[in-house]
Nucleic acid binder design. Structure first.
Lengths: 129, 129, 129, 129
DNA sequence: GTGGTCTAGACCACG
DNA sequence: GTGGTCTAGACCACA
């Protein structure tokens, strides 16, 4: 499914949160799809089940998944317009990154160009699903 | 100068690093400008001088400031074109943020518009110095 | 493991950095081998654990080791071809040393001979691992 | 005569010692040649005369210059065969550098080649004087 | 048990 | 007066 870097300073559970969050954002894990069971994933990654559980708990807390007791954990569908707080945080981060690129000497045109490369075409603007 | 969140999970010295880095990137602290003395800043923020020093040393390692023993700590002028590694990291972060904004329902046009608002105008677009 | 000179002008943590770096370079400490725990080494050398940690962090910054919180500190395998800056610095040092040897009356042949003695043989010249 | 980096972490007097030592080693300052007077050099470099004096004292201590009270400081001629201690130290440094180059992936042939480039021709082996 | 953070307080070198 | 070093000792997160 993905790989962990056990040498990283980042705690394993944090890496898990980030990886799974990415899979959700990139639409690899679809809305309402079930996540691997804690013990299964723990077996595959050969890490402690408690660590998986901590990651799932954190993802639930951040609003990316929901858990049904006795059933498992599932991807929570994004509700457009209901995440103004998160969006504001993202804009702050984006502002910081853009500022740092300017500070490092990247021209405004360059920045726009690089961002456009990461966006889907204007016509339709479909994501891969 | 700025505020710290002593209850945050992030270490105090890391918060310091981030805050000061922002002040440098946003050009509030100009190149070669002297930073507050270790003991002075420690007094203002009511934290231990060692913590300030740890932050300053970290900033020095990351290339944002330089410290001269007996003289003080100063903002290091950026050297354009000498930070390819940092730029690659920034692009990765940027890609992740853009993806998450798309995931949350922001349209590509919106994203471009908001970024352009943060860029200086092409004609005479100097930053505040 | 090694000895420190507490009366030296060089800070204790710097001496530690140099000694450990040597052990890594001379392949006494092998890649991914675990270093002594901070508290253990502090006990053996009868110096403060914070001083050890400062040395370890410095070694991490310089790319010789990596530390995983809760796990320990380990020797970082060298990545050939990714250290042009360090290599340039080494060549400068080398030039200075060679010049001083010439100044002190050592002949060029002597210098070459002594260096060759330190190099592994071309055929089967493996270092001790 | 030369330049100092007032932004460097290295103390000014240490930089002076290194620079002057280099000038002697590279034979720019010839044996028994008089060094600039303390106050003159202090004026040229716009630093404190005490700093110059400290550097001169250090150079005298290390055997590179000698001072005649009331006359000034002069370059001390090197006496071949009378510096075994210094030579041993240089060989240690050289061994360390060679080891680090090997560690960083430079081949033995490369190392020999680079050192030979810094040596005068075998025939005669004259230095620029 | 590991590395990491933080404090309180002393001492040093530099200019 | 500046940054830097070091100690002693407490507490925390992670796995």
């Amino acid at each position: 499914m993905f790989e962990l870097d056990l040498r990283s300073r980042a705690p394993v559970y944090e890496q898990l949160v980030e990886k799974i969050k990415e899979l959700i954002i990139y639409n690899v894990l679809k809305p309402d799809q079930q996540l691997p069971a804690v013990r299964v994933l723990a077996g595959e990654l050969t890490i402690n089940p408690n660590t998986i559980q901590k990651a799932y708990r954190e993802l639930e807390h951040r609003g990316y998944i929901y858990s049904v007791p006795g059933k498992g954990s599932f991807v929570k569908p994004a509700v457009p317009g209901n995440n103004t707080a998160r969006l504001r945080a993202l804009e702050d981060e984006l502002a910081k990154i853009v500022s740092e690129m300017l500070y490092l000497g990247v021209t405004p045109q360059e920045i726009i160009t690089r961002i456009k490369m990461q966006l889907p075409e204007d016509e339709g603007g479909k994501r891969d699903d």
